[in-house]
């Protein structure tokens, strides 16, 4: 049976990238605990508009935890208190009547605030553009079953590929590092046989772009703890290993030229 909650929200309000921003305090009364956190914000926004006040801007789209649009810090924790849950899937039944809740955007130099809780995550796209793909021209593929992939390998690649690119890992990392995001894509592709030809160039160039925007990894494990998809930091270790191996390899092999190997 659902019940109603009366809450006090402290939400970061910032008009634009240049504005310095500050917390605004809002009463959220009569919140049904079956609501999702975003539905609660919808209710608050409808009331704000009713009062002629600017509603709180936040990114969101699918509201089923897969598009990666939503995400902000709730009481000091990216995506809030429930492990393995994006804010759109976080339900108010995990809060108590009378709670004070602090809501703040992701904070990282690479993620400038656009407005309120909305940040730009464009550097994530840049990292993928640097090599987060397998070059497979349309129409040139051979039969799908001609490459056998052991189930454990496919499963592990999938575990890495489950990343939704929400940015919680960066938000949680005390260093503002994007190692979990980057390593997940590298691991997904570098584990698969199809990914081998570009394996070494991929890790080198993706890491380079990553480091041009983000901090470094000091193995705090905060990223793994807040990742809504439970991506493991083992993939970071794998990325480090591939990066080190790539650096110790012959440059000609790195180029993926005729001397390139598939190992």
């Amino acid at each position: 049976m659902s019940k109603n909650l009366n809450l006090t929200l402290r939400v970061w309000r910032q008009r634009g990238p240049a504005d310095s921003g500050a917390f605004g305090t809002y009463k959220a009364d009569g919140i049904n605990d079956d609501m999702s956190f975003l539905e609660m914000l919808d209710v608050v926004n409808e009331r704000l508009i009713g009062d002629g006040k600017d509603p709180i801007a936040f990114d969101h789209d699918c509201r089923e935890g897969i598009c990666g649009s939503c995400g902000f810090v709730i009481d000091g924790r990216p995506h809030g208190p429930q492990p393995g849950t994006t804010v759109c899937q976080l339900h108010m039944r995990h809060f108590n009547d009378g709670d004070d809740i602090t809501v703040e955007p992701w904070r990282a130099a690479a993620f400038p605030i656009i407005k309120d809780l909305v940040v730009s995550r464009a550097p994530f796209d840049k990292i993928i553009q640097a090599g987060g793909y397998i070059s497979a021209p349309t129409g040139a593929a051979r039969d799908a079953n001609s490459t056998l992939i052991p189930k454990p390998t496919a499963d592990l690649a999938f575990d890495a590929a489950a990343c939704i690119g929400c940015g919680a890992c960066v938000a949680a990392c005390p260093n503002g590092a994007a190692q979990l995001f980057t390593s997940a894509k590298i691991a997904h592709l570098n584990l698969l046989p199809q990914g081998q030809p570009e394996r070494w160039s991929r890790v080198t160039s993706m890491v380079e772009v990553m480091e041009s925007y983000f901090g470094s990894c000091t193995n705090y494990r905060e990223c793994e703890a807040v990742c809504p998809k439970g991506i493991s930091i083992d993939f970071i270790a794998k990325m480090n290993r591939d990066f080190l191996q790539a650096k110790f390899r012959d440059k000609k092999k790195l180029a993926g030229g005729p001397l390139g190997d598939a190992g």
Binding site: T102, A109, G176, R221, E222
Partner: peptide, 18 residues
């Protein structure tokens, strides 16, 4: 790493694993 997060969390933060 300092450059990567020039502005800290203004509402504080809670650690989950570190």
């Amino acid at each position: 790493n300092r450059q990567a997060r020039p502005i800290k969390y203004q509402g504080g933060r809670s650690y989950a694993a570190a």
